[in-house]
């Protein structure tokens, strides 16, 4: 078969290929950015979930056992920071409870609650 008789549809023209690459480029770049973004969003969700679980675990334990003023909660709950303010009955001893703030280490989750002292046997719930 001579070159002159070659079918005009064989292969793609250079213009077609270049146009296709350009169009794909316009789409693939934002698509990849979107995918990367969604991976980051997923990672953030997982981070929040872990923080929430850690905070819940600490709060549930403290509500059940009560707060011990001398307790080492930094070692016991390394993923959270526990802050307690004593609630004194009419401004004097004994401490009837603690206003408790439990914050995840990243600061994503912060929970405020009230717990009883450990010596009182914890919460009534």
């Amino acid at each position: 078969m001579s070159r002159g008789k070659q079918n005009k549809t064989d292969g793609f023209s250079l213009v077609e290929v270049l146009t296709a690459i350009a169009v794909l480029g316009f789409v693939v770049v934002p698509a990849c950015t979107g995918l990367v973004l969604s991976f980051r969003v997923n990672a953030r969700s997982e981070q929040l979930m872990r923080a929430e679980l850690a905070v819940s675990r600490a709060v549930e334990t403290l509500m059940a056992e009560g707060y011990d003023h001398d307790g080492d909660y930094t070692t016991r709950f390394p993923e959270v920071a526990v802050t307690a303010t004593a609630d004194l009955d009419s401004g004097s001893d004994p401490v009837i409870g603690y206003d408790l703030t439990v914050t995840s280490r990243g600061g994503d989750v912060e929970v405020h609650t009230y717990v009883r002292p450990a010596e009182s046997g914890g919460g009534g719930t």
């Binding site: 509500m63 609630d87 408790l100 929970v111 609650t113 009230y114 919460g123 719930t125």
Partner: peptide
């Protein structure tokens, strides 16, 4: 939830 439970505890 924990704020509410804390209020009852208080």
């Amino acid at each position: 939830l924990y704020e509410a439970e804390g209020a009852i505890e208080e």
